[in-house]
Amino acid sequence: MAKTELMSPVTGTVWKIERSVGDRVEEGESVLILESMKMEIPLEATVSGVIAEITVEESASVEEDQVLCVIES
């Protein structure tokens, strides 16, 4: 089992969490949506696998490069 961390590309807030821990996601599918500079920015899975962890809640502030989600594949 390889673990892949999805990191925030920006400083901003978590607008909407679309998937839950345990969900299976395919590469390119959005896990959650961030908001920064008035833009909605999807955080997409970089690998296909199962979501092992989502480290943030909706409306939380996040920093650039902060780990937001861990996918097991």
């Binding site: 590309p9 920064s36 500079m37 008035k38 833009m39 920015i41 999807p42």
Partner: peptide
Amino acid sequence: NPRVYGGA
């Protein structure tokens, strides 16, 4: 890149 600070 609009996904990084809206491309600013």
